[in-house]
């Protein structure tokens, strides 16, 4: 009697995985490019305010941040309202002018993003704005979150 042998497909059953590292690397590179590591260590506490009619700033390169809020003291205590630019708290308002002027020279289309704590009073912001006007950095942005 003839013996029937089951014909099986001649292909391999395993998925080729040789391209896997390449795929992973592509993902890796994507995330490396997208990632912005926490740029500064915040020394002031900021709770954002919400607003409805906001716009996005797509070009992050143009943005320079000014943080305004109560200073963080040790032990979870909060001090007076302070202004922080980059990594340090600015004690002298007049120094903002020079800092911002230097930044403007580097990036002529600079946008200054004011990240202000929602419980602040406007006087400090007025002072900062006056300094920004003297420095010539006129494009500003009040950082707010989208209203939920």
């Amino acid at each position: 009697m003839a013996h029937f042998q089951k014909k099986s497909a001649n292909t391999k059953e395993s998925i080729p995985t040789s391209a896997l590292p390449d795929i992973i690397f592509m993902l890796l590179i994507f995330f490396m490019v997208v990632t912005v590591l926490r740029e500064v260590e915040l020394q002031v506490q900021i709770e954002f305010h919400h607003a409805e009619n906001i716009e996005k700033i797509d070009q992050k390169r143009l943005v320079s941040y000014v943080y305004i809020g109560p200073e963080r003291l040790g032990g979870g205590q909060l001090g007076d309202t302070a202004v922080q630019i980059d990594d340090a708290i600015v004690d002298d308002m007049g120094a903002i002018r020079q800092i911002m002027y230097d930044k403007l020279m580097e990036q002529p289309r600079l946008i200054v993003s004011l990240r202000v704590d929602r419980n602040s009073e406007f006087g400090v912001i007025t002072d900062v704005q006056q300094e920004l006007r003297h420095a010539g950095t006129l494009r500003i942005n009040y950082s707010t979150l989208r209203q939920l």
Binding site: I54, E55, I111, Q129, L138, R139
Partner: peptide, 10 residues
Amino acid sequence: VDTGIGLVLP
């Protein structure tokens, strides 16, 4: 993305 209210100072 940074969101906020943009303004131009005089």
